[in-house]
Nucleic acid binder design. Structure first.
Length: 278
DNA sequence: AAACTGACCTGTCGGC
DNA sequence: TGCCGACAGGTCAGTT
């Protein structure tokens, strides 16, 4: 489900529902969800009695801080959290259950089992996990346009797979890359080093706008799940190209095309986003 | 070093 | 109806 805006929405939801809650015990039903040097038995033992002090986020990672420990959680494709009464029956695909002292559970569900959570001593959450490899957060204050331009100049790859690389800028995924490239009028197959300064500038602004607007709207839901945190979903972002194959471009009316780029479904307007000037 | 390729998983959808 | 391949919002290890 999640790119940065969806993860941020989940973070807010968790904060609202279970901040300051105390974990009484933990059940793990699929071992590989728990990753890193601390394995499952130790994971369960450590978290017993811990109080949730803070929900943070970096890129697509959620960071749950306790007093001495931090739990770094990545939802990958379909991970989600739910809060339920402990008595409620477990749904299919429930892999980790945190029993809270107040009679509720915080539950982690993940159909494809791609998600991971890693427990680290507090202070090591930015260094002992994949977070250490992340590029800047996509905000005006943190995402430097000149550095972005210089980085792109050194890369020969197509721009789309490059933007999916979290080392360049953190938080974009398949939906918002397509949306940002559309907004900046750049074809997904353009090589990074072929982009003019003005184009990189537009792309930089588009990335910040697309993700910022989506955070404000509470994320996007493509497939519909019910009950999951972060999918309160009264408002949704308006997507321009993602999932719009064959529909008229909102700018020029030309049918949106879908191609495959770096193994990923890729949507664009063939009129607004030209590969070459002809 | 940069850049592809499969692997990790389960469910759904479209075509024959 | 049933089967079978393609596809799904993401990384990561292994290879050229």
């Amino acid at each position: 489900m999640p790119e940065l805006p969806e993860v941020e929405t989940v973070r807010k939801g968790l904060e609202k529902l279970v901040l300051k809650a105390t974990i009484e015990s933990v059940e793990v039903y699929w071992d590989r969800i728990i990753s890193g040097p601390i394995e499952t038995a130790e994971f369960k033992r450590i978290l017993m009695g811990e109080k949730i002090m803070e929900f943070d986020r970096r890129g697509k990672y959620i960071i749950i801080r306790f007093n001495q420990w931090a739990l770094v959680s990545h939802l990958r494709m379909e991970g989600k959290y739910e809060v339920e009464e402990s008595a409620a029956p477990l749904k299919k695909h429930t892999h980790v259950v945190f029993h809270l002292a107040d009679g509720r559970d915080l539950r982690y569900l993940d159909v494809r089992k791609f998600g991971r959570m890693t427990l680290v001593p507090i202070g090591e959450e930015f260094t002992a996990t994949g977070i250490r490899l992340l590029g800047p957060e996509p905000m005006v204050e943190t995402f430097d346009k000149a550095i972005f331009y210089r980085t792109l100049q050194t890369k020969k790859r197509a721009i789309k797979p490059l933007l999916l690389d979290q080392k360049i800028v953190a938080g974009l995924g398949n939906i918002y890359v397509d949306e940002a490239l559309f907004l900046a009028k750049i074809h997904p197959l353009r090589t990074a080093n072929s982009l003019q300064k003005i184009e990189v500038s537009k792309l930089h602004e588009a990335i910040i706008k697309v993700l910022g607007d989506a955070v404000e709207a509470g994320g996007t839901t493509i497939r519909t799940y019910q009950n999951a945190l972060g999918e309160a979903g009264s408002f949704q972002v308006n997507l321009s190209v993602y999932g719009k194959k064959g529909l008229p471009c909102v700018r020029c009316g030309t049918p949106i095309e879908k191609i495959k780029v770096a193994q990923r479904g890729t949507h664009f307007c063939p009129m607004c986003q030209r590969l070459s000037v002809d």
